[in-house]
Amino acid sequence: MTTAVAHTPRVLRPTTIKEATGALAVHPGARVVGGGTLVVAERSRGIDGPASYLLLSGIVDLSGVSRDGGGVRIGAQTTLRDLLDAEVSPLLDVALRSLATPQIRNRATVGGNIADRRPAHTLSPCFLALDAAVESAGAGGTRRRSMREFVSEGLAGGEIVVSVILPERSGFQRYTRVAPRNGPGYAIASVAVSIDPTARSVRTGLGGVGDSALAAPAADDFLTAAIDWDAQTTTDAAAAEYGRLLAEASNPVTDDRSTATYRRHAVTVMGRRLVEAWTEEQHHG
């Protein structure tokens, strides 16, 4: 029997980025598998499984953490465990320790955590705070966007994440979240922030309070202006206002984990406390 429809192999195993994007152009229904922890768990939960999988594990160019000057390039297939071991940022260190379990971190990948922009996932808020860029590849080639653009636009059809690039950034970097417990489980809301005294810049990422991770440019600009960079200090009122602006940047929903009202309140408090923690660290740390 012949058919006009291209037959999709059940398991596609590209070995290069070009092979992967070429295969996705021909077989758009294939589900991209980084480490599989999310894709396989969803199938087990009864969410319809795809007719075929495209495994990224055979693509050597997607793996590993490399340092380039002051910056860091994180390949999409880097496991969360390997990113934790690489100690690239104090903010990521805390975030990754709170992300799922050692077993999951040994398998789940950086690309998989950010690719479909799920709001509860941990890494996108962190990469926003670290002012990262995302490199993605599709049939038309490779492109590089800021993390801010990536969280609002996402991947185009047939694209894969290639790497996350972190610029050099110094100073205070912190991740905090509200969750049912400190152990494994998605956060209800999270805030990541970096306050860089060299660049005199504030960058914030919010998790769990929108359709995807969210940047908070108005809050960043406000705090940047409200900080006395020479004295490395700011006011209590500015800390509170920064928290309020984070809530304003949020667009949370009420779902089975929490309410929109609580999520807004949580980012307000977390934002204020993060600025207080920064002040504390400058003067007593």
């Binding site: 922890t37 087990s44 465990r81 398998r107």
Partner: peptide, 23 residues
């Protein structure tokens, strides 16, 4: 079977993984 409980833990090259969510 969702990578939450660890009962299915095996070692892959010495590292623990959940075999229930590994293809």
């Amino acid at each position: 079977e969702t990578g939450s409980c660890g009962a299915c833990t095996v070692l892959l090259d010495g590292r623990p993984i959940n075999s229930c969510v590994a293809l």
